[in-house]
C-alpha cells in the first residue's frame, strides 16, 4: 500500500489505497469465510460439487437469509429481536388458523398474518420506546409470550400441535405458487425463496447505503442521542426496523406454511440466534451502528453451505452446532482483524 498522498492541510491523514478501502468494508470477513467454507467442502464432499445440490444449498440459505436481512438492519440500528424465530411461526399459524377457523379465503389469512406480524414488530419497538428497557429484555418477553400463544391458540383452535390441512381451501393453490414455487433453471432447481432472499438483500442493502432512512439507521445505532440532537426521528426509525423484521418473518412464515402444508406450533424456537449469527458473521456489531445487509446474507449462505456440507461430507451432523459456534467466533475474530488492518493503512 504505497498510494499515499500528502495533503497541505494535515499531513498526518493520508488517503487510503483502494485495497485498504475494500478491506475496511464490513462484509469482507464474511466473503473470505464463505470462500473458505466453499473450498473446504468442495474438497472433502463430492456431493457438494454436484450442480443438482446448488439449489438445495441456496434454499437452506434463503430461509435464514430472508430473516437475516431484517435482523441485520435492526442490529445496525442498535437493537435485537429475540422474538424473530417464533415470530415466523406466529405468522404462519395466524394465516393458517384464521383462514381455517373462520372459513376464509387463504389469501385473507395471508393478509391478516402480515398485519399481525407488522403489529408484533411495532409493539416491540413501541415497548422499547415506552419502557426504555434494553431490546434484549423486551423481545425476550415477547419471545416467551409468542411461544406460549403459538402452542395455546393452536391447541384451542385445532386441538393439536399443528395447523389443520387446508390444501383444498380457496386460494391455496395460488398462494402456494407465490410463496413456495419451484423454478428449474438448467440442472438447478430453485425455490422462489431464493428470489425473495436476493430481492430483499438488494432492497435492504440499497436502503442502508443509498437512502436517508439508511443514514438514520446507522446513526440511531451508532449514537442515538447524537442522532436525536440533529433531528433524526430515532424512535420511528427503530419501530420501523422492528416492523421490517416482522415483514421478513411474514415472508418466511408464509413459505413454511405453503411449502409444508401446515405449521408446527412449537417450531422456530432457537432460530433467532441463527439469524443473529448470520448478521454477526456478516460484519454487524452487537453494539449497533455498523454492519452490512449483504454481509448478513453471505453469513446466511455460510450457514446453508455448512449445514449441507457436513451431511454431504458424510460427517456426523450432530457436530453442526459445534461447527457453527466455532465459525461464529472465527468469523468475528477475522472481521476484527481485517478491520484493524484496513484502518491502520
Amino acid at each position: 500500500m504505497t498510494a499515499t498522498t500528502v495533503t497541505a492541510g494535515d499531513d498526518r491523514v493520508a488517503t487510503r489505497s483502494r485495497a485498504a478501502l475494500f478491506l475496511s468494508r464490513p462484509e469482507v470477513g464474511a466473503l473470505i469465510g464463505a470462500i473458505a467454507i466453499a473450498v473446504l467442502f468442495l474438497a472433502v464432499a463430492p456431493a457438494f460439487r454436484s450442480v443438482d445440490n446448488v439449489g438445495t444449498i441456496l434454499y437452506g440459505s434463503s430461509t435464514i437469509g430472508i430473516m437475516a436481512v431484517g435482523v441485520s438492519l435492526l442490529m445496525i440500528g442498535g437493537e435485537f429481536d429475540l422474538s424473530a424465530g417464533v415470530g415466523v411461526t406466529t405468522s404462519g399459524l395466524t394465516a393458517a388458523l384464521t383462514a381455517w377457523d373462520l372459513g376464509l379465503n387463504v389469501w385473507t389469512g395471508v393478509i391478516i398474518a402480515l398485519v399481525v406480524s407488522l403489529a408484533i414488530g411495532a409493539f416491540n419497538g413501541w415497548l422499547l420506546h415506552v419502557t426504555g428497557l434494553p431490546s434484549f429484555l423486551v423481545t425476550l418477553g415477547t419471545f416467551f409470550v409468542l411461544q406460549g400463544v403459538n402452542l395455546a391458540v393452536t391447541r384451542i383452535v385445532t386441538g393439536g400441535v399443528s395447523s389443520a390441512d387446508m390444501t383444498d381451501m380457496a386460494g391455496w393453490g395460488s398462494a402456494q405458487k407465490v410463496f413456495a414455487a419451484q423454478v428449474t433453471i438448467g440442472a438447478v432447481k430453485l425455490n422462489i425463496t431464493v428470489l425473495f432472499w436476493v430481492l430483499l438483500t438488494a432492497i435492504g442493502g440499497f436502503l442502508l447505503l443509498r437512502t436517508t432512512v439508511g443514514n438514520w439507521i446507522l446513526a440511531s445505532g451508532g449514537d442515538a442521542a447524537a442522532a436525536r440532537a440533529v433531528g433524526v426521528p430515532v424512535t420511528a426509525t427503530k419501530i420501523g426496523l422492528f416492523m421490517g423484521v416482522g415483514f421478513c418473518a411474514w415472508v418466511t412464515g408464509m413459505h413454511m406454511l405453503f411449502n409444508f402444508n401446515n405449521v408446527q406450533s412449537g417450531a422456530g424456537v432457537g432460530n433467532e440466534f441463527i439469524y443473529i449469527i448470520a448478521a454477526v458473521i456478516g460484519g454487524c456489531l452487537l453494539t449497533g451502528g455498523y454492519g452490512s445487509v449483504v454481509g448478513a446474507s453471505v453469513g446466511a449462505l455460510i450457514f446453508g453451505m455448512t449445514q449441507l456440507g457436513i451431511t454431504y461430507a458424510g460427517w456426523n451432523p450432530d457436530w453442526f452446532k459445534t461447527f457453527l459456534g466455532a465459525m461464529l467466533l472465527g468469523a468475528t475474530l477475522v472481521n476484527m482483524y481485517v478491520k484493524k488492518k484496513a484502518d491502520a493503512r
Binding site: 449514537d223 440533529v230 433531528g231 451502528g289
Partner: peptide, 21 residues
C-alpha cells in the same frame, strides 16, 4: 454539544449531512 452529536462509526460526509440529507 460537548459530545458533538457525531456518530463515531459513520463516515465524515454522512455525519455532516445527518438529519439534513
Amino acid at each position: 454539544y460537548q459530545d458533538l452529536a457525531l456518530a463515531p462509526l459513520m463516515s465524515v460526509w454522512r455525519n455532516f449531512f445527518l438529519g439534513n440529507e
